[in-house]
Amino acid sequence: MNSSTFAFLDEDAKKEIRRSLLKAVAIPGYIVPFASREMPVARGWGTGGLQITLSIIVESDTLKVIDQGCDGSVNAVNIRDFITSVTGVESSNETSAATLIQTRHRIPEEKLKDNQILVYQVPYPEVLTTVEPDTAKQKQMHGDGDYSKLWVLLYEDTSQYGDSRISNRYPVLVNKHYVMDPSPIPKYDIPVMNNNSALQLFGAGREKRIYAIPPYTDVRPLKFDDREFKVENFSGIACERCGATDVFFDEVRRGNKSSFFCSDTAFCDAQLEKNNAA
C-alpha cells in the first residue's frame, strides 16, 4: 500500500473512475464500464462502492458507512476504518452529519439532502441477466428501451402469485429510459430513490461497472398501469428498542416469537435519545 497517496488509489485510477462517474451521471441509469483495481478487501465485499468513495472523497467530507442499515456491523466498520485511515476524514453515524455515505442494501431513513452523496455497493449490476444471458443482446435491449422480457416476468408472477415475487433488487425505470438494478435494497426503499435530493452512485467491483442517478431524477419501479407497487407491510409494528413506526424493520425470531427493530441503527439511536430527553 502506498501511504503517501491520499485515499489509497493513485491519481490516474481516480481520474479514470471519475470520468466513468461523469458519464454515468450524464446518462442516468446507464451502465458504464471501469477498470476495477485490486483493493485490500476481498471482491464481493464492496470493492466497487469503495473505489467510487475513494475517488470522490475530499478532506472536508464526513463519512458514514452502513451495512444493511447498520453502522456497527463488522463489514461497515472495516470499510469505514480503512477509508478514514487512508484519508484522515471525519466519520459519523449520524445521517444528517455525513456528506458521503457508503451503503450496502439500504437507504437511510432520514431524508437525504442535496449536499449528500450516497454510494451503493452493487453485486449484480445488469438487470437483464435473468432474462437474457447474451451481453450483446442486453446492450441492444437497453439501447432500444426494450424491457418486454422483464415485463413478462412481472406478468408471470402476477398471474401465478398475484404480485411480483421480487423482494429486493426490484427493477427501476430511471429517467423514463433505462431500467436498472437498484442493488439489493428492499422494495421499501425503492420509492425513496425517486426525486431524491442526493446524488446516488452505484459501484460493482467484481463486474467492473458503475452507474448513477443524479439528484431529482425520476425513478419508478417497473409496474403495470393497473397494479399498485406494494412495499413490505409493517403496519401495526413498532421498534422494540425505540418505539419507531413507519420505518423498515429487521425481524428477529426467537422461538415462535418475532421481535422487530429499526434496520437503520443510527435512526434508532436518535429516536431513543429523543425519547430519553423528553
Binding site: Y155, Q160, D225
Partner: peptide, 27 residues
Amino acid sequence: LNFLFSAGGNIAERIIGSGERRYEEIR
C-alpha cells in the same frame, strides 16, 4: 418460443412489445 416463459408469458411478451402496460389487458 422462449422456453423460460409460460405459454401465456410468450404471448404476453408480444402484447407487451406492442406497447400494452395494463396487466388485465395483457392477461
